[in-house]
Amino acid sequence: MPHLSVHALESDLAGRETALIEKLTDAVVAVYGDWARSIAAVQLIGLPPNRWGIGGVPAQAPSPSVTFGIKEAAFSRPDADEIVARLVSGVTDAIVDVVGEHVREGVTVELVGTPVGRTGIGGVVQTS
């Protein structure tokens, strides 16, 4: 299941939650196909000012940061480099479309692969 956790300033999220969830889901679907729409999970985590530090001090205007959890097998595919590039650019574009061009330069997208058997849903380890 594609899972996106987005950390952003609360002021960047306020009133934009629905649009951002829709755009991020669309970015996932653009790469994986429509079958992924119903399983794409998006969590928006808003931080108040001064709760985000860079370089040992509170950041003045940090851009959103995304942790994108996917199956580790995606990195072994012959087209892995293309998939990674499309996911990073699509997620970045989705955030910029909703929050604004001023955040583009600092948007961080980290793709984190989870090995088979290392995720549980409803108390059951997922084996596929």
Rank of each mutant, 00 (worst) to 15 (best):
residue 6 V to E: 05
residue 70 I to W: 00
residue 18 T to N: 12
residue 79 D to K: 14
residue 68 F to R: 02
residue 95 I to G: 04
residue 85 A to P: 10
residue 28 V to E: 00
residue 76 S to N: 15
residue 47 L to M: 14
residue 73 A to E: 12
residue 89 S to N: 14
residue 73 A to F: 11
residue 115 P to Y: 00
residue 5 S to E: 11
residue 50 N to R: 15
residue 62 P to M: 05
residue 82 E to V: 15
residue 119 T to P: 00
residue 120 G to Y: 14
residue 5 S to M: 12
residue 58 P to K: 11
residue 98 V to R: 04
residue 94 A to C: 05
residue 55 G to P: 05
residue 116 V to H: 08
residue 17 E to V: 08
residue 75 F to A: 08
residue 69 G to S: 08
residue 117 G to A: 12
residue 4 L to Y: 03
residue 44 L to N: 07
residue 101 E to G: 10
residue 86 R to P: 09
residue 16 R to Q: 14
residue 82 E to D: 14
residue 124 V to N: 12
residue 31 V to R: 01
residue 90 G to Y: 08
residue 83 I to H: 10
residue 35 W to I: 11
residue 71 K to H: 01
residue 1 M to S: 02
residue 115 P to F: 10
residue 95 I to P: 04
residue 100 G to K: 13
residue 47 L to A: 11
residue 67 T to G: 04
residue 81 D to A: 15
residue 102 H to S: 13
residue 71 K to D: 04
residue 13 L to M: 12
residue 62 P to L: 03
residue 75 F to H: 05
residue 124 V to I: 14
residue 111 L to C: 01
residue 9 L to H: 02
residue 73 A to T: 11
residue 80 A to I: 03
residue 31 V to A: 05
residue 15 G to E: 08
residue 2 P to I: 00
residue 111 L to A: 03
residue 61 A to L: 09
residue 74 A to P: 00
residue 69 G to I: 03
residue 98 V to T: 14
residue 70 I to A: 00
residue 96 V to H: 02
residue 5 S to K: 14
residue 23 K to D: 08
residue 85 A to I: 02
residue 10 E to F: 02
residue 67 T to V: 09
residue 63 S to A: 15
residue 112 V to R: 05
residue 38 S to M: 11
residue 96 V to A: 07
residue 101 E to L: 14
residue 77 R to F: 01
residue 34 D to F: 03
residue 111 L to Y: 06
residue 66 V to P: 00
residue 80 A to C: 03
residue 48 P to Y: 13
residue 17 E to K: 15
residue 52 W to R: 08
residue 85 A to N: 11
residue 21 I to K: 13
residue 6 V to G: 06
residue 44 L to E: 04
residue 124 V to H: 12
residue 72 E to F: 03
residue 89 S to M: 07
residue 71 K to W: 08
residue 7 H to L: 04
residue 59 A to V: 09
residue 121 I to Y: 13
residue 59 A to E: 07
residue 38 S to P: 05
residue 73 A to V: 14
residue 77 R to Q: 13
residue 4 L to R: 03
residue 9 L to M: 14
residue 61 A to H: 11
residue 74 A to T: 08
residue 101 E to M: 09
residue 123 G to V: 15
residue 59 A to S: 12
residue 5 S to C: 04
residue 103 V to L: 06
residue 99 V to L: 12
residue 41 A to M: 11
residue 39 I to T: 14
residue 27 A to L: 03
residue 47 L to C: 12
residue 73 A to L: 12
residue 42 V to E: 06
residue 107 V to E: 04
residue 84 V to R: 13
residue 43 Q to M: 10
residue 7 H to Q: 12
residue 120 G to E: 11
residue 32 Y to N: 06
residue 52 W to V: 15
residue 55 G to R: 15
residue 19 A to V: 03
residue 83 I to Y: 13
residue 30 A to D: 08
residue 42 V to D: 01
residue 4 L to T: 04
residue 17 E to C: 08
residue 71 K to F: 07
residue 76 S to L: 07
residue 41 A to E: 09
residue 111 L to F: 07
residue 88 V to D: 10
residue 69 G to V: 06
residue 114 T to M: 03
residue 125 V to G: 01
residue 128 S to K: 14
residue 11 S to I: 06
residue 103 V to H: 06
residue 93 D to H: 04
residue 72 E to S: 09
residue 33 G to V: 04
residue 71 K to N: 10
residue 128 S to I: 13
residue 121 I to G: 01
residue 118 R to S: 12
residue 100 G to W: 10
residue 48 P to K: 15
residue 58 P to Q: 13
residue 25 T to I: 03
residue 121 I to C: 01
residue 50 N to A: 10
residue 119 T to S: 11
residue 110 E to V: 06
